[in-house]
């Protein structure tokens, strides 16, 4: 089984790349698939606190966040799959958008390296060192 990731001919970096404030990694599981009024309800609650950190409120829960740039040389992709995929066949995914940074939110706790998500990005650097050819 192969996974094909396709970029449409019409996809350009300028119109396909999302703004810095488009992707939000929230500390809760939302049992919902589909669109959400993020701009209207969530982005309006975002504020900068006195230490330049970000604050927001989601269903009354206080959130603290930071903007995380993706590691150099990496790109975030939003993929879309048409139809259901059945096991054993090839999969084709279409690139809908790409992003270079995201906002990482914690519930009432300033994000630090102790957060699994942020520390997971360490692997990228280590993996590069591990897999680099030995001179």
């Amino acid at each position: 089984m192969t996974v094909h990731i396709k970029k449409s001919k019409h996809f350009t970096d300028e119109c396909g790349t999302l703004n810095k404030d488009s992707i939000h990694y929230v500390p809760c599981k939302i049992y919902h698939e589909g669109d959400a009024n993020v701009t209207k309800y969530f982005k309006t609650s975002i504020k900068t606190d006195e230490n330049k950190g970000l604050e927001a409120s989601l269903r009354g829960y206080p959130l603290k966040g930071i903007i995380v740039d993706l590691p150099k040389g990496y790109e975030g992709l939003i993929l879309e799959e048409n139809g259901k995929w059945t096991e054993g066949t090839d999969r084709t995914l279409h690139v809908r958008n790409q992003f270079n940074s995201l906002t990482y939110w914690n519930w009432d706790k300033v994000p630090t390296k102790d957060d699994a998500f942020l520390s997971a990005l360490d692997w990228i650097e280590i993996s590069e060192a591990v897999h680099a050819p030995v001179d």
Binding site: C28, K29, I30, Y31, H32, N37, Y41, F42, L58, G60
Partner: peptide, 28 residues
């Protein structure tokens, strides 16, 4: 998804109850 505007006190059981019924579940 987001429930209510910030006028509403989400922590009130009345609001919580209605959200549980009418909005998608969020697990913290």
């Amino acid at each position: 998804v987001f429930g209510y505007p910030q006028l509403v006190r989400f922590s009130w059981s009345t609001a919580e109850k209605i959200l549980k019924e009418k909005a998608v579940e969020m697990e913290w």
